[in-house]
């Protein structure tokens, strides 16, 4: 039954559904019994007990590594990374072990695990609690990466991630946890590799992820008053990527802005720009514009943080730029 709920609640509902559906599914992470700090896992222990909601020691390598050990011998772990920033303490486990094992072992093992990655800028988290690190993982063959922007998408994609026989990272922007939206009926899933047009438009395609989807929708309203009709396209999953949907949108609008929250250099947006160029070069009427953070760590002080945070203004400016001469 459809209902309007918060993003964090949608995460919890998806976990609940999958844990009910498959008793091999368990959650592991730091402070997940009380769901501190984002509340996504709070209360799960009441239904599923401590054997399936594991409050782990502060041992990121062991949390992520043990998830792989469990996944390759029959369980389906869902790891709460606490803050995606801390994945650096388990980077061997993600990049060398989880991503490569099926491949190196010639397909002998399944690694059906999900890494939930709360991430993103906001509320003066500072340099160790604010980073958009999805690009690191897009660059590691063997991982699937999705980045849902709405309660419905996180509900559907998290369920898909848990059912997927391969490792999937789900990037949950912590600034979205309190955003509300309609979640369709309980059985709804969102497949990986399926983009969604969040707002149709004729003049310019803004390819945006996570929080930048919302910023882009705000920008679109403002641009509408200037007579610029913006299409907001959310890839939803980065690996696999719905290249067809990108190409179809570009074929309609012929102008592209790519908006992300992470730093400009070596990023997801840089890669998406190449994808658009390779698939749709002849369709483009203007160079692609990008919105991203400057290449600095995320600073603490509110005005500094605001300065580096990409927002609707940046999307408006980029859209005006690609519309020049139109």
């Amino acid at each position: 039954m459809a209902r309007v709920i918060e993003y964090a609640e949608a995460v919890k509902l998806a976990l609940q559904h999958e844990m009910r559906r498959d008793d091999r599914v368990y959650c592991i992470g730091e402070d997940i019994v009380l769901g501190v700090p984002f509340g996504c896992t709070k209360g799960l222990i009441d239904e599923f007990g401590p054997a399936r909601v594991l409050n782990a020691p502060i041992s990121e390598a062991a949390i992520v590594g043990s998830a792989m050990g469990a996944a390759m011998t029959g369980l389906v772990p869902v790891v709460d990374m606490h803050f995606a920033d801390f994945v650096t303490c388990a980077m061997d486990e993600v990049a060398n072990q989880i991503a490569k094992s099926r491949y190196m072992f010639g397909g002998q093992i399944d690694c059906p695990l999900t890494l939930r990655m709360p991430y993103g800028i906001g509320r003066s988290g500072g340099g160790h609690h604010s980073n958009s690190v999805e690009a690191w993982f897009v660059n590691i063959p063997g991982l699937k990466v999705c980045i849902p922007s709405t309660p419905a998408d996180v509900f559907g994609l998290l369920k898909t991630a848990i059912r997927d026989p391969d490792p999937v990272l789900v990037f949950e922007h912590r600034g979205l946890y309190r955003v509300t939206g309609e979640v369709p009926d309980d059985d709804a899933v969102v497949p990986l590799g399926r983009a969604e047009v969040k707002r149709p438009g004729r003049d310019v395609t803004v390819i945006a992820t996570a929080r930048m989807v919302h910023e882009s929708l705000t920008a679109a309203e403002r641009l509408a008053s200037e007579g610029i009709d913006v299409e907001v396209l959310d890839p939803r999953s980065l690996v696999p990527l719905d290249r067809d949907a990108l190409a179809a949108s570009v074929a309609r609008t012929h102008r592209v802005v790519i908006a992300e929250e992470g730093p400009m250099r070596g990023s997801t947006g840089a890669w998406l720009a190449w994808v658009v160029m390779e698939d749709s070069f002849d369709e483009l009427d203007a160079p692609i514009a990008r919105v991203a953070a400057p290449n600095v760590p995320i600073p603490f002080s509110p005005p500094l943080e605001a300065f580096v945070t990409p927002d609707a203004d940046d999307v408006v400016a980029a859209a005006r730029q690609v519309m020049k001469g139109a």
């Binding site: 062991a62 992520v64 590594g65 043990s66 050990g69 469990a70």
Partner: peptide, 10 residues
Amino acid sequence: CVLAPGVGLS
């Protein structure tokens, strides 16, 4: 050493 506890859980 860190994969092993997960195999143990399974």
